[in-house]
């Protein structure tokens, strides 16, 4: 049997890749995708803990968080679409008219 640490390290690496992408990527759609990666890392954590303790609530949590993430992406894409209509760009660097 694969020990629990393997899964947890896998989830942590996934989370780190997502966080790195959020920080360095300029295209906001890619940033949203990276946020999805981070959320899925947390979901993997939940499922692993749930499977190893045979407590079913972790899996309930994952179903909830997947639906929340779907709603968040739907709203996020709609907001990006609106920003593209108004400002003709969705690059993070050019969405910086307000500072300090």
């Amino acid at each position: 049997m694969i020990p629990i640490e393997v899964y947890l390290v896998f989830a942590a690496i996934l989370f780190a890749i997502g966080a790195y992408g959020v920080v360095v990527k300029n295209n906001t759609i890619v940033v949203l995708m990276c946020i999805e990666l981070m959320l899925n890392a947390a979901n993997i954590n939940f499922i692993v803990f749930s499977a190893f303790t045979t407590d079913v609530l972790g899996q309930v949590f994952v179903i909830m968080s997947i639906s929340v993430a779907a709603a968040e992406v739907a709203v996020g894409i709609a907001i990006l679409l609106n920003a593209y209509k108004v400002k003709n760009t969705i690059e993070a660097d050019s969405l910086a008219s307000m500072r300090w």
Binding site: T28, L32, I35, E72, G76, L80, K85, I90, L95, S97
Partner: peptide, 14 residues
């Protein structure tokens, strides 16, 4: 508002 919403949704997602 469009710019603020983009920032808010990304920071909120993070």
């Amino acid at each position: 508002a469009a710019e603020a919403a983009v920032k808010y949704v990304i920071i909120g997602g993070l």
